[in-house]
C-alpha cells in the first residue's frame, strides 16, 4: 500500500483530493492539518492542497525538505515556487473555470501522459511567473505561463489547476501518476 497524506491548507476542494485518493486501489490516505509538526509526517507522498492565503500554510514550507515526493495543488503549487526561489505574482487574467492547458514536457512523470493538451478547471488570482532552480515548466496555457512544474530529482511537482474537481477532464490521471511516483 502507498500511503498518501493530504495536507489541508483550508481550500474548499481539499476533501475531493482525499476522496479521489481514497477510492484508488493500492492507496491509503489521511487528511491532516498544515499545522502538523514536520517530525510527525509519515507518508510515501504528500499532497499540499489549495487554500485562500499564503499566510495560512502552516508548516508546508518545512515539509519540502522531508525528502518525500510532493504534489502541490494551486496554492500548494505556488508555495513550492515561493519557498524554493521562484516567483509568484498576481495574474493579469484570473484563471477561473474552463482552461485548456498545453503540456510542454511529454516525458514529465506527473503530467506528461496528458499531452498534447487537456481541459481543466481552475480557480486562482495569483500565479507562478518564475520556477525555482532545478524545476522545469511542464504545462502552460494562454492565461498562465506556469500551469505545471516539476523537479524530477527531488520529486517535487506543482499544478496550478485543480485535478481533484469533477470538471477537470483528466484529473484522476494526475493523481494516478503521482501515486506511481510515490510507490
Amino acid at each position: 500500500m502507498t500511503h498518501i497524506l493530504v495536507v489541508d491548507n483550508h481550500g474548499q476542494f481539499t476533501h475531493l483530493e482525499h476522496r479521489l485518493l481514497r477510492d484508488m486501489d493500492g492507496v491509503t490516505v489521511d487528511l491532516t492539518d498544515n499545522t502538523t509538526p514536520p517530525a510527525d509526517i509519515d507518508a510515501d507522498g504528500l499532497v499540499l492542497s489549495g487554500g485562500p492565503t499564503m499566510a495560512d500554510i502552516g508548516h508546508c514550507r518545512e515539509y519540502l525538505t522531508l525528502d518525500v515526493p510532493i504534489l502541490g495543488v494551486c496554492l500548494g503549487h505556488q508555495l513550492i515556487a515561493d519557498e524554493l526561489g521562484g516567483r509568484i505574482e498576481a495574474g493579469d487574467y484570473g484563471g477561473y473555470a474552463d482552461v485548456t492547458v498545453s503540456i510542454s514536457d511529454a516525458d514529465d512523470p506527473l503530467v506528461g501522459s496528458l499531452a498534447p493538451d487537456t481541459r481543466v478547471w481552475a480557480s486562482h488570482a495569483d500565479e507562478v511567473v518564475a520556477v525555482p532552480d532545478g524545476f522545469t515548466i511542464t504545462a502552460e496555457s494562454d492565461i498562465c505561463g506556469v500551469e505545471a512544474m516539476g523537479d524530477t530529482d527531488r520529486d517535487l511537482y506543482g499544478v496550478q489547476w485543480h485535478p481533484e474537481v469533477a470538471h477537470t477532464e483528466e484529473g484522476e490521471a494526475v493523481f494516478e501518476n503521482f501515486v506511481a511516483i510515490c510507490e
Partner: peptide
C-alpha cells in the same frame, strides 16, 4: 450541471 456542487458549469 455538476457532480458534487464543488464546481459547476
Amino acid at each position: 450541471e455538476s457532480r458534487d456542487g464543488m464546481t459547476a458549469r
